[in-house]
Amino acid sequence: MSLTASPDVARNARPYLYGGEGAAIASALSAGQYNHGAVTEEFEQALAGFLGVPDVVAVASGTAALHVGLLAAGVGPGHEVIVPSFTFCATVQAILATGAQPRFIEVNPDIGCVEPAEVLGALTPDTRAVMPVLYGGRAVDLSPARLALDEQGVTVVEDAAQAFGSWQGDRRVGATGAVTCFSFGPIKNLTCGLGGAIVPRTPLEADICRRLRGLGIVESAARRAEATTYTVDGFGMRVQMSPLNAAVGLVQLDHFAEAETRRRALWRSYAAALDGIDGIALVDADVERTLPPLCAVRVLNGLRDRVFRELRQHGVGVGVHYPPNHTQPAFSEWQRPLPVTEHLGREIMTLPFHQHLTPADAEHVTSEVRRALTGADQ
């Protein structure tokens, strides 16, 4: 591991590859099955084994996972889905794709996640699902609200796009009983290049997910190859995960212990370096149980935009994750006052965070943050 800070590496997040991904893709290419095949199913089984669950359904993206997961849970037109405004817009677009409507709620600004009291306060007769977003990979425990949700028939569909590898208690996120949706995009804790997965609750739900991802066709690809017809019994999309992507995921999963070690170490390096700097507050990731995909801070005193511009000008790849969705033009129909989220949206900033970075890079970024804060405060 380099002991010298590398500002160019700190500029932007990049996928982290372990070296075997190219050979795995070449092998999948030579097999000649690019839409859905044995490698995809092998990846599903490996994910299920890692999480300790009976089944996992792989799909083309994290957004597709959210869409399919909501549909499998019975969400559709006339329903509401409780969701934090503080999330990536894909979360909301997946809700709208089902024909349902979002009901935006606040988050705890110290952690970026919803709290049970906010969920309970937002319930209406039309609520069919709650979609907690596991911001920064942190698990969300809605057990205090579970009785009320169960009594109303409300399903928890977790947006765990950032939380693969994290824990809730003694179980991995995905093994806690909710419909859980993961993303395996380019800079996630585990990447397939592009991909996602749903953890269903029952064999029936798994079957529904597989039909939804495969154009509503009942029979498997292997069975269709040996038959003269097939059966379409309902709505479906073409959102299967390609074996090419699954091949990358299998290699990544083999090296996941390294991802856990490096990501937690990098987050702790940032936390130590940021400690004591006035004007900035670290968003708590609960790193003992969370596998962090990012390092988020709040820039206080109205200085975020100036500090952001200053850092970008000096080659530090900071970002904003995320602007509140209830203020977006596309979602204005469902806008409601959310002052906590609006304030958080003006403060939030994410620091460069990927496995190419070293503790020295974290020190370099933090020194640039300190310098930018000093300049912005004058």
Rank of each mutant, 00 (worst) to 15 (best):
S2N: 13
S2P: 05
T4V: 15
A5E: 04
P7W: 07
P7I: 04
A10I: 00
R14M: 10
P15A: 04
Y16W: 15
G19S: 05
G32A: 13
Y34I: 13
G37A: 12
T40G: 09
E42F: 03
L47V: 10
V53R: 13
P54D: 14
P54H: 12
V59E: 01
L66P: 01
L66C: 07
H67L: 14
H79Y: 12
H79K: 11
S85R: 13
F88H: 15
T98R: 10
G99Y: 13
A100R: 11
F104M: 12
E106W: 02
D110S: 13
A117E: 15
E118N: 04
A122M: 06
L123P: 01
P125E: 13
D126E: 15
R128A: 15
M131A: 10
G136N: 08
D141T: 06
S143K: 10
P144Q: 10
L149S: 08
L149I: 10
E151Y: 02
T155W: 02
T155C: 11
V157Q: 06
V157C: 11
A161L: 07
S166T: 10
G169S: 09
T176L: 01
A178V: 01
A178Y: 12
V179Y: 06
V179C: 08
C181Q: 02
P186A: 15
T191P: 04
C192Y: 11
G195N: 04
G195P: 01
G196P: 03
V199K: 06
V199W: 12
P200R: 06
P203Q: 09
A206W: 05
L212Q: 02
R213H: 05
G216S: 06
R223D: 15
A227M: 12
V232I: 15
F235P: 01
M237I: 07
M241S: 08
L244Q: 05
L244N: 09
T261R: 15
R263D: 05
R264Y: 02
A265C: 07
A265M: 07
L266G: 09
R268E: 14
D275M: 01
I277K: 02
I280G: 04
D284A: 08
R289I: 00
T290G: 00
A296G: 01
D305N: 11
R306E: 12
L311A: 05
V320L: 09
V320H: 02
H321I: 14
Y322E: 09
P324G: 05
N325S: 12
P329K: 07
P339W: 08
H354T: 00
R371L: 10
G375D: 06
D377I: 00
